[in-house]
Design a protein around this nucleic acid. Structure first.
Lengths: 403, 403
DNA sequence: CCTACTTTCTTCGATAACCGAACTAAGTAA
DNA sequence: TTACTTAGTTCGGTTATCGAAGAAAGTAGG
């Protein structure tokens, strides 16, 4: 299935916007919506009624009076798992079901072996998600942790769509994977088509960094027009919000900064064949490799982070170098794009030395005008940020599709 | 005067869009407009009538039959100079009057001494523009070349606005200049307020690179959603088009890549105090300085370009280094932003060695996915591209303001 | 308890934008 | 001359939105 890009709607007070205001708590009553949207009370009433009839909104008793009649509170139906999401990572996948407000109803982390190929991996994950959505029981018993927000129990309401995040370049318009670095056997795979054969609801595929960006933007920076999110985990990527919308670029590869060159003393070779790529210097995988080459035995990224926490010289130095490298690239990006906020997520975001170096480099290298009011933050650290973004993508799509 | 950002209008077939289609020749008749916009013939007729009544459109006889009734051709009134524009440069300013289609009616290049300060410089240029618009005669006799498109003669029609491009960071929303590199005495100057006291029509101020970007995009790449334009002259800057709109960023400083750091063997000092800024390596001013330091006597950028044309080793080597430096930064930008087109303008755009190095670096350093269909072009080399962009900015503003 | 005022929300024309169908205008092709 | 094509207008009809008025439901003060 091909997804028509960025479902447009009237700029002011469209159904998506109303829904989002209610979901985020920005609006509780019809009067709130009227004030926020600038629409007349009568128009809002009409629209809200339509949304209620579609099951996208519901009334939730009376609220607090503010000196007059009490508002009839509005809420997005909760507990009904209506969106499935998969956030595929290098070693694990976070899957879940979410309600219309973007809240996680059920979440699971599953181990994944990317090298098994797309059919096996995606087939299993899709089955798992649909099982979650329909009954709650898992297909396999390999689930790691339980539901993160067991707000109801079962999954009421029918599944309306599935969102999938892939840790590599994805052509969002076609749903096809394009020459990923660390995913042998996945090149050219048509995720959207594969999924369309297995589930009968819309499937939306995007890059994992884009999903993180969307999730973080919607939950933390909804009022910021321009934002950049860095996802630094095993790999490194970024997602861009421009004028409040996810910017995907001409080929849908926007935000892919992993192979930008940075200065590094012994420029390490990258999986792409070049030397000195950002990914070869500042990704989790790079840190593991570099430490091992220095003779420090580490198992994985977790081990590296533990070493850094323990104050290991070598590991900390590498983290600082990684932070500088990210900061270097980000400096160009900030000067060029002039966002309101830059936020870093992924497992490396919890690494203080890295973050500090990145910040320092950013402030040193950017125009004062660009950093003057720039927020440099950590993405609210949550394993669910990816599937949250995926859900928002799906919700936007299904809400826009409705009459 | 404060300009409300990006005058919004209905996405489909707004008056601006209709006007632009006629101006660019994409549409000639009401039927064309109906097909292009998707609006019904009756609606288009209505709107066209309104535009004609506003004097923004006129009928121009009958066109060629295509097997049926001949279309009643539409045209944007020409010859009437209705917009004034100033494209301020380091040593010269291009000023002119333009008609509603964005075509130059009268154009002049005047010598400018930036160091005389904003009041003197802008005061003189404003006087010159208003003189051009009202009578055609110049205030001073220092004009360099004559009208570039003397399509009518006098300037009919009243002036509807003035657009001004400044070779430094401008906060477009307020019209204020913010810490420019090469403009002593201009820091913090409120261009918009200054001009508002002198002319009684809207004045819109923006960065010169933004104006070039807008001008080039409208005239050459109107159908490209995402584009990046580099202006490499005495200084270096860029303008960004995102989703068809000029992207100004949070502070309006987007596109200011002049102080991004690049690798350079003897990293030259920049006017900003840092070393290795793009501007200190790859700008016209930098080339002049570097050549002089090597003992080659050159007067100005023109001299440098002549040396390069003559095959001078030193000058050519510097041009190649400049091209590599621009390519380096642009590679990050292209990976990050994934535009459909990158175009380079300004006086250095005619320097072949620079362009070749830039291209090579770009192809070497970018994701294949990002360069696969990327156009790398020269901005159609014209001294009028800046004032054209300025005019478009003004036209968009005044058309949107009309009822 | 009653009155005045606030806030919330709905009801009910009025208005404006847009559309579609029918129609006029003006041509080509055979 | 007839049939067909394209261009453009006229004219009701539909739809979205608004504004005014009012109903609903409260608070505050006597």
């Amino acid at each position: 299935m091909t997804i028509d890009d960025a479902p447009r709607e009237a700029l002011r007070g469209g159904p998506r916007e109303l829904l989002r205001w209610v979901a985020t708590g920005a609006a509780v009553s019809r009067a709130d919506l009227s004030r926020l949207s600038g629409l007349s009370p009568s128009t809002v009433s009409q629209r809200v009624e339509a949304l209620i009839n579609q099951g996208l909104l519901e009334e939730a008793g009376a609220g607090q009076s503010r000196g007059g009649r009490r508002p009839r509170q509005l809420a997005v139906p909760t507990g009904g798992a209506v969106v499935g999401a998969i956030d595929l990572g290098a070693h694990h996948a976070r899957i879940g079901t979410l309600d219309l407000s973007g809240r996680v109803v059920q979440g699971r982390t599953l181990p994944v072996r990317i090298e098994d190929g797309p059919e096996t991996v995606l087939g299993a994950l899709l089955a798992e998600v649909t099982a979650l959505a329909s009954g709650g029981g898992a297909v396999s018993s390999g689930g790691a942790d339980g539901p993160s927000l067991a707000s109801g129990g079962g999954a009421a309401g029918a599944l309306r769509g599935v969102g999938i995040g892939i840790p590599g370049p994805v052509q969002h318009s076609t749903g096809r994977i394009v020459s990923p670095s660390r995913m042998p056997g996945w090149n050219g795979f048509d995720v959207a088509a594969f999924c369309a054969d297995r589930v009968d609801v819309p499937v939306i595929v995007d890059n994992d960094a884009n999903l993180m960006a969307l999730g973080a933007h919607r939950t933390a920076h909804a009022e910021m027009d321009h934002a950049v999110y860095i996802k630094a985990g095993t790999g490194i990527g970024s997602g861009v919000i421009s004028s409040g919308q996810l910017h995907r670029g001409a080929q849908g590869s926007a935000g892919d900064i992993s192979h930008c060159r940075v200065v590094a003393d012994p420029a390490p070779l990258c999986s792409c064949g070049n030397a000195g790529c950002l990914e070869a210097v500042a990704s989790g995988a790079a840190l593991v490799t570099a430490l091992r080459e220095q003779g420090v035995p580490v198992d994985d990224l977790t081990g590296v982070l533990r070493l850094i926490d323990d104050g290991d010289r070598h590991a900390t130095a590498l983290a600082r170098q990684a932070g500088r490298a990210i900061g270097e690239i980000l400096a160009v990006v900030v000067n060029f794009f002039n966002p309101q906020v830059v936020a870093i997520g992924g497992r490396l975001a919890d690494c203080e030395p890295l973050l500090a170096s990145m910040r320092a480099t950013l402030y040193e290298r950017c125009l004062p005008l660009a950093t003057q009011t720039l927020l440099i933050e950590r993405v609210a650290t949550s394993q669910d940020i990816g599937i949250t973004g995926a859900a928002h993508l799906v919700i936007d799509h299904v809400v826009a599709a409705h009459p």
